[in-house]
Amino acid sequence: MTASAIPYRSIAGALRPTPGDIAVALLTVVLLVGLYLHFWSGVGGEGERARIVSADNGVQIVPLNEDRTLTLHGPLGDSVIEIHDGRIRFIESPCQGKQCIHAGWLHSAGSFAACLPNRISITVLGRNRHFDSINY
C-alpha cells in the first residue's frame, strides 16, 4: 500500500481519523489499561515481594519497593530485616552463627535466607520461582 491509497485533500481533512485509526486508538487504550493493571496491581508487582515467615509473627508478604526495616521477634530474641532498593537482608540476629546475615542481600525470585535458631525465614517471591521448595 503506498501513498495512492491514502488521499490528502486538505489540511483539515488530513486530521480526520479513519476507522482504522479509531481501531488503533481503542487497541492502544486497552493495551495501556492492561499494562497498568498487570504491572501496577498488587503491592510492588511480581518478583518484587518477599515472604517472611517467623514462628512468632506468622507469615507476612512485604513489598520490596518500599525501603524499611522490620524487627521480628523469635525464640532467641529480635531479628532485624532491612528492605532497600528492591532487596532484602538480615542485618541483626541474636543467633550465634549469623549465617542469615552472611547470606547478604537477596533480590532474585526464589532466593532464600533463614535464621533457623530464631525460626525466621525470608523468601523472595516471583512469577518464575527457581525452586519449588528448599531443602535444608
Binding site: 491509497a5 491514502i6 488530513a14 481519523p17 479513519t18 492502544t28
Partner: peptide, 20 residues
Amino acid sequence: IRLWPGPSLSPLGVCMLSSL
C-alpha cells in the same frame, strides 16, 4: 501494517503503532 488487509490507517494510526 503494509500486509494488513483491514481498514486503511491515516498517518495518525501509523504513527501511533510505530511509536508504541
